Amino acid sequence: MRTSTRRFVFLPATVAAAMALLGGCSDAVRVSAPTTTGATSAQCRALRAQLPRTLMGRERRSTTPDSDNTAAWGSPAITLRCGVPEPGPMNPASPEYDPHETQTVMIDSSGMCWLTQPTSGGGYVFTTVKQQTFVELDVPGAYAGQDYPLPELGAPLRKTDPASTDPGVAFDCS
């Protein structure tokens, strides 16, 4: 008596398709997207459309979740978040607040004003200071000593998010 055994063979095309789907997901950078509304949402959407394809010579990458408030370049990822809350050193309600602390505020060569905060990994978080919407750029320590990213963002930021006219802005780069 003869018995038959069924064997399942995965087709190479099926495996390749599954890998392509999974591979596309793994390339996206996870970035926490700030929740925005109104004018801030419009400014972040406009900024994302104007951001450069490369930053510090690194190619732009997709972000997850997909949001008008985030962008990323390179690996390890340099990430941008638009519509972040006011940084602690600028917020009078924060224990980090110090209106006289100007050592962490700088103007880049494009004329933009940034708050600079070191991270534990040797990198920096830069946050716009005078714009109407706070934009944060997180540059990992792996890029220390390399090109400076801020001037490349100056033109898109000025075009899409004008300087605040609020006289209560704690830090002034001028």
Rank of each mutant, 00 (worst) to 15 (best):
T5P: 02
R7N: 11
R7P: 09
F8N: 12
F10P: 12
L11H: 14
A13R: 08
A16F: 11
A16S: 10
A17P: 03
A20N: 06
A20W: 11
A20C: 15
L21F: 11
L21R: 10
G24D: 14
R30C: 07
R30G: 08
A33Q: 08
T37A: 15
G38K: 15
T40N: 08
S41K: 10
Q43W: 06
Q43G: 02
R45C: 03
A49G: 05
M56E: 09
R58Q: 15
R58K: 13
R60F: 12
S62H: 10
T63W: 11
T63H: 07
P65S: 07
W73A: 10
P76C: 10
A77N: 06
I78H: 04
L80C: 01
L80R: 09
V84F: 13
M90S: 05
N91I: 08
N91F: 02
P95V: 01
H100Y: 13
H100R: 10
T102W: 06
Q103W: 10
Q103N: 11
D108H: 01
G111P: 04
C113F: 07
L115E: 00
L115Y: 03
Q117Y: 01
P118G: 05
P118C: 09
T119W: 06
G121S: 04
G123S: 07
G123A: 00
V125R: 06
T128A: 01
T128L: 01
K130Q: 13
Q132M: 09
Q132E: 14
T133N: 01
F134Y: 06
E136N: 03
E136T: 05
V139S: 01
P140A: 04
P140C: 08
Y143S: 02
A144F: 01
A144L: 06
G145T: 03
P149C: 07
P156K: 13
L157N: 04
S164H: 09
T165Y: 01
T165D: 05
D166F: 01
G168A: 15
G168S: 15
